[in-house]
Write a protein that binds this DNA or RNA. Structure first.
Lengths: 220, 220
DNA sequence: GCCATTTAATGAATGTAATTTATTTGGCTG
DNA sequence: CAGCCAAATAAATTACATTCATTAAATGGC
């Protein structure tokens, strides 16, 4: 029961911002690598250069921490995307770009994508999360594009824009699951083309392909 | 330290099949209600009328148990579906039925659906799972229908059947997430119609609405 | 019907990981 | 330079899954 007075514990004190940033970076790394369940606070702490319990001074709990990580990722993606879109002409091209961008994001960050798809979205609290709000912002460009395309007469007007959104993001997700599990790769460009084409043209054999030489311009 | 000889422990011995069935039923109930993480072996054991440790005589571990539960569910769905399909004429109608059936399955078993979507599919081992094989069997009817439709000239032949499959199941899944989280309901019939229509007709304004019998509004 | 063997079932032990709490430490202020 | 406060720590707590040694029921040979 004699306590070892000799062993002074080493304490490394840092400014709040620095610590928080260090923890976030460590958490990003570990969550990306291991997913949510298999990520341990102790590994994050070790990587950030402190002790498990100390994480809780900066973040409420493991979930809060992972949410902060995902938030940062979303913010980056949204601003990145907003920089590109204005330069693209025509609803179909814009749609193609949104599809391309999402495929690309998944390919760049499979670990974080998995986290969102399987850890957050199913959560009954998801709707109250900031991730939900960010995701809505992120996906709303598709519904916006669709509405614009309808106004311009480029798209038929009797389709629900949110159904189109679900179709696009759902299709992409299903298409990329094998990759997300680490089973090989996929081609962003080809996939984007294929989805855009199927979505716009539809599956039916065109009833009257002869009559329309100019697919874009409407007549009279 | 005196051990209580007086307290004889009560043991309820049952035939293997009965025990296994009891455990499976209890597990079905608990997993449906609580999902995977929040389901505890002790709750399942209690409901099945035995003690935690005993579960492990019948199932390797928690994961093995949940897999058995999901397997049973899939087998039921597949046979149920195979009973209907032959009676339907035309690729488009068959597709509509597959879509309808999946929507219906999700609506009947939101808890189990969530389990598959967020617990199994992301698992790196998923491909080696029997669930994977069953899911493949379950979804393959869509690719089959699409191929048939192409052969019959009802569908265009330059589309990947598996892309259509991903589009359908992905779209359905995205469309039902809010419901799966317990946020309200959805209409199976209407949704099935909307998806079928969008998938077959496509988003583009028909270049030549005059030639076909006026789907929405005709001008002039 | 009776003992020996087999196997179901138990209850306690083990291990791991998140979270909480009581203590200690370092830097800053008056 | 003493004392305070927030930052860090280490140890305690909790909640489960999983393992294991022990007990009890069933069964088969006599």
């Amino acid at each position: 029961m004699a306590r070892p007075r000799t062993k002074k514990r080493i304490v490394n004190r840092l400014p709040r911002e620095r610590r928080e940033a260090d923890i976030l970076e460590a958490a990003l790394h570990v969550f990306r690598l291991r997913g949510y369940e298999n990520a341990s606070i102790s590994e994050i702490a070790e990587r950030a250069g402190l002790v498990e319990g100390s994480i809780y001074r900066y973040f409420q709990n493991k979930r809060d921490l992972v949410i902060k990580v995902i938030e940062q990722w979303y913010l980056g993606m949204i601003s990145e995307d907003e920089a590109w879109l204005p330069g693209i002409e025509g609803a179909r091209n814009k749609l193609r770009h949104a599809i391309w961008h999402h495929l690309n994001a998944i390919r760049q960050e499979p670990g974080l994508s998995r986290l969102v798809f399987s850890e957050f979205r199913p959560d009954p609290e998801y709707r109250q999360t900031t991730i939900f709000a960010l995701n809505r912002r992120y996906t709303s460009r598709v519904t916006d594009i669709v509405r614009e395309g309808m106004q311009a007469g480029e798209f038929r007007a009797d389709v629900s824009p949110s159904l189109v959104r679900n179709l696009i993001y759902g299709c992409i997700e299903h298409h990329t699951w094998a990759f997300l599990r680490g089973e090989g790769d996929f081609d962003v460009e080809r996939t984007a083309d294929a989805i855009t084409n199927l979505l716009c043209q539809g599956l039916d054999q065109r009833p009257n392909p002869v009559a329309s030489p100019a697919p874009r311009k409407k007549r009279l």
